[in-house]
Amino acid sequence: MDSHFGQYIRTRRQELLKTSNQYTVRKLAARLAIQPSYLSKVERGEVAPPSEATIIRLAEALGEDPDLILALAGKISSDLRAVILKRPRLFGELIRQLKDAPDHAVLRIAREVRDGKW
């Protein structure tokens, strides 16, 4: 099972627990509408990461970026998947081309408004 995902969740939860008692396993599980024992097993890497919807709620509860937490769980969000599946060859090639590009270069990919003949 993916222990890295679980470790990240546990570490983040424990950091927040230092400032608020709302981040005990029991209280956080209640907010996510899952069993505390299941959350514990997720944190220990004893079960596979939860569903996309639960991971997104978990990310929001922990103040984390949903795409980051989904990636840690080995998933991509359904909306991103839909974007890629609509034009798989185009986005597949784009992502491969950018795999080693530095962050600032990726962030500078901007779509220009096209000017034509007036």
Partner: peptide
């Protein structure tokens, strides 16, 4: 973007871009 709806806008719009 006009280009995003190229099939449903007038040809002149596609030519102008924008």
């Amino acid at each position: 973007h006009v280009d995003d709806y190229a099939a449903r806008v007038p040809a002149a719009w596609r030519a102008h871009g924008g």
